[in-house]
Simulated scan of single mutants.
Amino acid sequence: MTENWNVFERITERERMSLFLNTGLKQDGPAKDFGRLLSITVNLYRAMGNQAIPAVYEQVYRLEDRLESLMSRQSDQNDDRKGIYAGRIMTGTKVELFFYVKEGIEYKRGLDSVIQSFDQFNFTYAERPDTNWSFYMDYLFPTPLEQLYMRNARLFYGLRQNGYKLDVVRPVHHVLYFEGRESLDVCKQKAIAHGFKIERTEAGNEKHKLVVSKRVLLDMSVLNGTVRELFELAQAHGGNYDGWGTNTSRRFSVRLRSALRNPRIVTAVFAIIVLAAATWELLNEGF
């Protein structure tokens, strides 16, 4: 099965959720013989009353690894997997993990053994038929807006991993497309009313482009909120939200590490160090 793991948030009227999902399953599923949905609910209340939250989440991730290993392990010769891990939903006090299990396979003894080794949590689990993987396709899989959140998470993680400064307010540019000029003009006025600056408009043969910007902190929740605002604004006027971009600068330590990968710069730095050491030695000798 194709693996393409992604993180995105889901906001409902009642709560905010974080989903970790193998979105690659959509192109392969539903898998033959894996037509039963197993949901495992982990209640975190008791653990959070006794431990720091980061420690609790670390244990959740270890539990997740154990369960995936139990259900997805297979030999080289045969597909003897018990189940296919689809993903999880996490809220402040609860985690739900979802597997599509093979019909007629015995897994409960191993599952109970794993659960007993994590006695700081309260568990419930249930299994039901879902031959068409309707729960995955219709509920778990991200909506068009959530796919933008998913893309935001990948971009945000990539910027952070590469040392870009994310803790400063900066202009973020957003691109929207419309089929008609009239729709673009209406949306442009509403964007101004929402505090956006109009950077430019471009007329095309088939689509008209609108670029707007707003100075915001490059924070995930702020970014998702801005994307949602523009996505809904574009949709209301027959347009499409295309994405965002910003000028970023990397932290000095990361720029230095990157520069030192260049052999010419390494040679120059080494020469400066040698020269400085030689000068210091001569000064100490009273030259």
Rank of each mutant, 00 (worst) to 15 (best):
C187K: 05
S213W: 00
A203C: 04
K188W: 03
Q51C: 06
F270L: 11
A86P: 00
A236G: 01
L230W: 03
I11D: 12
D79Y: 04
R14E: 07
P30L: 08
S183H: 12
F270P: 00
V7H: 13
L210R: 01
H237A: 07
L166G: 10
I53T: 08
E64I: 04
A153P: 04
I53H: 07
Y107P: 07
E146F: 09
E64R: 15
L283C: 08
K82G: 11
R88P: 03
N262Y: 02
A191C: 04
G286W: 07
R215Y: 08
I198E: 02
G163Y: 14
K102P: 04
N162L: 13
S18W: 12
F121N: 02
N4C: 10
E182M: 10
A52I: 10
D28E: 14
Y100R: 06
P263V: 02
N152D: 13
A86Q: 05
L159C: 06
S258D: 15
H174W: 04
N162K: 14
L256H: 07
E206C: 04
Y125Q: 03
K188I: 04
T23V: 14
I53K: 12
A126V: 09
N6G: 11
H174A: 14
I198R: 00
A31C: 13
E206M: 09
D219S: 03
M71I: 05
K209S: 09
K207V: 11
V172E: 02
N122F: 06
K32F: 06
T267G: 12
L218R: 02
D119K: 12
L283K: 14
N122C: 00
E202P: 02
F287V: 12
L145I: 11
V274A: 11
L145R: 06
V101T: 11
G245Y: 14
A47V: 00
V56C: 10
L223S: 03
M220H: 07
F99C: 03
L223W: 03
P30Q: 03
F98H: 15
Y177G: 05
R154G: 10
Y177I: 09
T93I: 08
V172F: 07
P129D: 15
D119C: 05
G243I: 08
D242W: 09
M71G: 02
T248N: 06
Q59N: 12
Q235P: 01
D112F: 06
F8I: 07
Y241K: 04
K32Q: 07
S18C: 10
E9K: 03
L217A: 08
T131D: 09
V168Y: 06
H237Y: 14
E9N: 10
D119V: 05
D130C: 08
V186M: 11
L210T: 02
T91A: 03
M137R: 15
T91K: 01
E179S: 12
V186A: 12
